[in-house]
Simulated scan of single mutants.
Amino acid sequence: MIIAANEQLLSEDFSSYSSIGRFAATIYRAMADSHEWFAFPTKAELNFEIKLRNETIEASYALLESGASFATFYYSECNDYYWTLTGDGGFELKPGVPATQAVNDIFVNGEAYAFECATAMMIIFYKALINTIPNERFNEVFQHLYLWDWQNHPFFPLRNVPGVGAGIPGDVRYFKNPDVSPQTPQWQGENVVDLADDRYYGHGDRHFGGEPDHY
């Protein structure tokens, strides 16, 4: 259910959101048909959420085509023109480098990068935000950008919601691997983006069963 500006919006109005992006109408219908409440003080804030979710899905497809590889944190790689590779396997933005350029480089020169699936989710989120807000604002806020896992992002806090139902396209979810071996703990699960229509993007060529949660 969607409440915006103290008005309940109907699922049948989905077509009016198509101009926001190619997945926007699907996102709107999923929110409107959900048993969860999505409340927004204004319709502009609803549009922002739909836009950000749409761009999250778009960024997932773009990362899939980027050529970036999967690696555990120990074996992470990045383009050292934009990033400093830390001992934890994270990417620290170099001083004076616009954050928009550094994030976009991952999608343009993906062959220079290798990272874990949790890092991939944050890269997708930041790319989605770049495509949602003005570049100048993004560069102002994220002058000290650090890409590692999904924690410790003070200007982009995430909420972990366990045991959700169907979810909404643009959610990041987690699939546990019931067959994980103690010898390969890096395969214990997969962070994925809900692409709608029972399709998910996960960084790396791996497929897991299990029930997903989402952040």
Rank of each mutant, 00 (worst) to 15 (best):
Y17A: 04
S18T: 14
S19K: 09
S19G: 14
S19L: 07
I20V: 13
G21L: 05
A25E: 15
T26A: 15
I27A: 01
Y28P: 00
Y28L: 01
R29W: 08
R29F: 10
A32V: 00
D33A: 10
E36V: 11
W37H: 15
F38C: 08
P41T: 03
P41I: 00
P41G: 11
T42Q: 02
E45Y: 13
F48Y: 14
F48N: 02
N54C: 08
N54M: 04
Y61K: 09
Y61E: 04
Y61T: 07
A62P: 05
L64K: 15
E65F: 04
E65L: 09
S69Q: 14
T72E: 09
Y74Q: 15
Y75W: 14
N79T: 04
Y81E: 12
L85I: 03
G89V: 02
F91R: 06
E92S: 11
E92D: 06
G96M: 05
G96K: 01
A99I: 06
T100G: 02
Q101N: 14
G110N: 08
E111D: 12
E111H: 15
F115S: 01
C117Y: 13
T119S: 09
T119P: 04
T119R: 05
T119A: 10
I123C: 01
Y126G: 01
Y126A: 08
A128V: 09
A128G: 08
P134L: 04
P134A: 08
E136P: 05
F138C: 06
F138E: 00
